[in-house]
Amino acid sequence: MFPLPVAGCLMVHTSRTDGPMDIKHCDFEEPLVEIQQRIDELGSFSTTEGVDFSAEIAKLKGRSETMLGEIYSRLTPWQIVQVARHPQRPYFLDYIRMMSDDFEELHGDRLFGDDKAIVTGFATIAGVRMAVIGQQKGRDVKENITRNFGMPRPEGYRKALRIMDLAARFNLPIVTFIDTPGAYPGLDAEERGQGEAIARNLREMALYEVPIVVVVIGEGGSGGALAIGVGDRVLMMQNSIYSVISPEGCASILWRDATKAEDAANALRMTAGDLVGLGVVDEIVPEPVGGAHREPMQTAMTLKEAILRSLAELQKQPKQRLVERRLEKIRRIGPVLDQ
């Protein structure tokens, strides 16, 4: 259905998630593991003993699905953190592969190097040309070393800025995909001005005269996420998170105990629902029962529709009005009392 030769992906291999696979269960999915074990037992019994357990197996499968639905209908913030960080969750390039007709990766910041924790390029989605920017995590140790666990360095943010500048000059809408634990806190990143790189992006993104759609697809880790996150429309996948600090980091500072991360996750209001309430997020993109990693293609199609709908709405607005509205929206976040 979707042509797959994606130039950038061939150069740096990133595993796909759109095929069938064994789902790794989160801690809170423990009851499902037990049912699955019994299904497997009955299955092997059927073959070795020649007894037909298909009715029981079907019943157990039904129970498993109901239970999955129940678990996912009342996820706690801390459980959502687990889903957002799930190792099989679709990443930026997975979505691009599943959603786009074409993708041409563009490399480098023209100043220092090519940061593979941020992937940038041109994409065509359902015939619409656009610039896409996304943070990219790896699936295994090797990939994660290449992608630096999705933690960009200044050259990544400067590459993103270069591509967004291009988009603004040549009238392409910009779609960014946020999925990072945070900007890389390393010696080299500091030396090359991590703070300056993030800050400059915030200032420039606010004023581009093309539509900008931001999607939080997994982890929205603080300034490192925001640096590609200023836009006209902010979408957030149902089981993703977005916060000023990780729950672990917050717990170790404010609770002085990193094991209190669950308390911090509750207090920080980092889920999609919370962020809509705070005026930061405009739309929640629903995920299939059990999370995006269980049905990547279905998730991608839902997201594709949401992105195209947002872009179509934004394209109708005159450029000046677009920027005015973007600024008004940013300004309204965090109302204050005047006594």
């Binding site: 980092m270 930061v280 940013i330 976040i333």
Partner: peptide, 13 residues
Amino acid sequence: GIVSLMQMAKTSA
């Protein structure tokens, strides 16, 4: 939380 993060975007904008 996120509101303080957004002040970075707001002031830079």
